[in-house]
Design a protein around this nucleic acid. Structure first.
Lengths: 208, 208
DNA sequence: GAAGGATTCAAACGATCGTTTGAGCATACG
DNA sequence: CGTATGCTCAAACGATCGTTTGAATCCTTC
């Protein structure tokens, strides 16, 4: 089922929107520039004019979402970090909720699938781009997890964070067996997802 | 870094081995039949002769590993299912260990990446194939989890199993931040992975 | 050796791909 | 109006793709 692509806005924005939708559905290789430009209602050469290459377009698709997402994550983390009453669940909430809100937004709903594909594809240049531009966010969350879980060795901590983020990526990508029920609103489904994820991840991180 | 591909064995086996390696590295679309047949040392037309099409080749790559993997899973489950002393960790072990052993075998080491890609790609025909041929295994494990976690609603149970399998897929795909240290043997690393996974998943499944 | 079936081979097909190119159009400014 | 800049367009390029084809080779059996 094809996600409808907005045909208003600047050419550049239309391309980014179509790219996001088609990359989510078909992957980076699977979505051709002809499909994408057709969906956006622009000419094929517009991609190279505005973005230089398909590869650069892929990076811009990420940049336009991750800049805002990670800013929100860091802002939420700043509210709870280092506080004496902070619980693990609060830090997890700061990490998970911005992503879930993005994931369930009308226009951002496919982005987490794009992100999941980025991880699954093991594309070295893409991972380098993500690591260089957003790795500092993960390091800040890791430091706060370490503060709240002093009983864990560094190695155990990394293991658990890795598994928790794996579960998070999986949940957000929409690939699992959980689908929103038709009698449940988008907002309620998102809240349920947040709670399930936080409960699962907090227990897993705290396991002894 | 390219995984070396065996050049002995029947043409068919060589193609399957090369396919597994290149699908893991480049994805289903990203790995062309020319790359694959070149790596296997066979002629391009051999794929269509032996498998009919690239799509059918993909299915056979899965079938040759999943038949054995799921048989092992069911055998391990049969040893613990329904027993009065069975713990959650035992069922998780039955689910996880065969996959980890496959994941760390010399020849099967890339298969879990192939499987992770299958999930990430959200390819409907592939998911249908996996669901039709191997869905019964998951249902049997779910029934045993339900027996051991009677306090959970059906919905909560599905949520947690989904998250746990997401974490498992992530760990086995080798995409996360955890790499084997050079002073740790393959066998020890595998055992560590099993233990980390079981501890994390059991705690997450049991969360209250 | 001959026959039949299985397998391999190189060439070719039609299709698709990302990128490039130069002409044409639109807008803003003097 | 002329000029400069930005943007759009269709055609073309070189490359790659999965699939097909018919000839050649290999293997087995009689």
């Amino acid at each position: 089922m094809n996600q409808p692509v907005k045909r208003t806005g600047s050419t550049k924005e239309r391309i980014l929107g179509a790219a996001e939708a088609l990359f989510a559905q078909r992957g980076f290789d699977g979505a051709s520039l002809r499909q994408l430009t057709s969906a956006a209602g622009v000419n094929l050469a517009a991609v190279n004019y505005h973005f230089g290459s398909k590869e650069k377009l892929v990076e811009q698709v990420f940049r336009r979402r991750l800049d805002a997402l990670n800013a929100q994550r860091l802002a939420a983390l700043a509210k709870v970090a280092g506080q004496p009453g902070t619980r693990l669940e609060d830090v997890l909430d700061a990490f998970i909720r911005p992503a879930l809100e993005l994931s369930h937004e009308e226009e951002g709903s496919l982005f987490m699938r794009v992100l999941a594909r980025a991880f699954a594809e093991h594309d070295d240049s893409l991972r380098k781009f993500l690591s260089e531009n957003y790795g500092h966010v993960m390091r800040q969350f890791t430091a706060e997890f370490a503060r709240l879980l002093p009983q864990l060795s560094k190695e155990e901590l990394y293991w658990r964070i890795d598994l928790a983020t794996g579960a998070l990526t999986h949940a957000m990508s929409g690939f699992g067996m959980i689908q929103r029920k038709s009698d449940v609103s988008e907002r309620v489904h998102r809240e349920q997802t947040v709670q399930h994820l936080i409960r699962f991840a907090a227990a897993g991180l705290n396991a002894n």
